[in-house]
């Protein structure tokens, strides 16, 4: 899995005792934005000749926040856009997976992750991913309501499901925003 927030979420939900379905759904709902990144990248990564199937398959895996952000700074269909996408995507792909491997091997050497405060590192990682997305008041309100609803559901639902309730909060928020903008 090469899309950081989803990877963290999958591990987070499983670690908190959530089931496979809850973990996978949370990860995929978080990763759904990559579909739209791919869609908006189409004109930027356009080549003079039709791209090969392999190219599209590889390009898909490298589609993440960072590679998208770098590619769309250059003109559509330009060589720079394709290079920026490829360089960013590949560099992060290699380093990220080395990091994941080190973490997976290193974790086995730890006795209690709580002594090192690693359980506090998890929410810190999520808030660091969330922070740059809180661009306006309605998004901040959405974040606060989602957090409150999830917490209220912790004592009543199985682990993993309270986080998923945020997807429903997002659906309601989308309707409210749509109504306001019309």
């Amino acid at each position: 899995m090469f899309t950081g927030a989803s990877q963290f979420a999958l591990v987070g939900v499983l670690g908190a005792g959530g089931g496979v379905l809850a973990a996978v759904l949370t990860a995929l709902l978080l990763g759904a934005r990559n579909s739209l990144y791919a869609l908006s990248l189409r004109p930027y990564l356009r080549t003079p000749t039709a791209p090969s199937t392999w190219r599209i398959l590889g390009q898909a895996q490298l589609t993440i926040d960072e590679s998208t952000a770098m590619a769309i700074r250059y003109p559509e269909g330009s060589r720079q856009a394709r290079h920026a996408f490829l360089a960013t995507g590949l560099a992060i792909f290699v380093l990220w997976n080395i990091g994941t491997l080190i973490g997976a091997l290193g974790a086995a050497a730890l006795d209690d992750p709580r002594t090192l405060g690693l359980d506090a590192a998890v929410p810190a990682g999520f808030i660091a991913l969330l922070w740059p997305r809180l661009r306006d008041r309605s998004l901040i309100a959405l974040a606060l309501v989602s957090a409150a609803v999830a917490l209220a559901l912790v004592p009543v639902l199985q682990p993993g499901l309270p986080v998923l309730s945020a997807a429903l909060v997002a659906v309601v928020a989308e309707r409210l925003i749509a109504r306001r903008s019309t």
């Binding site: 934005r33 999520f126 991913l129 974040a143 957090a147 999830a150 986080v163």
Partner: peptide
């Protein structure tokens, strides 16, 4: 619009749950 809102909602819920919950 929904795809743009989902990460904010889910990440916020993950922050809250991972900070305050121990099982249920």
């Amino acid at each position: 619009r929904l795809t743009a809102l989902l990460p904010v909602a889910l990440l916020a819920a993950l922050v809250a749950v991972q900070t305050f919950s121990v099982g249920t």
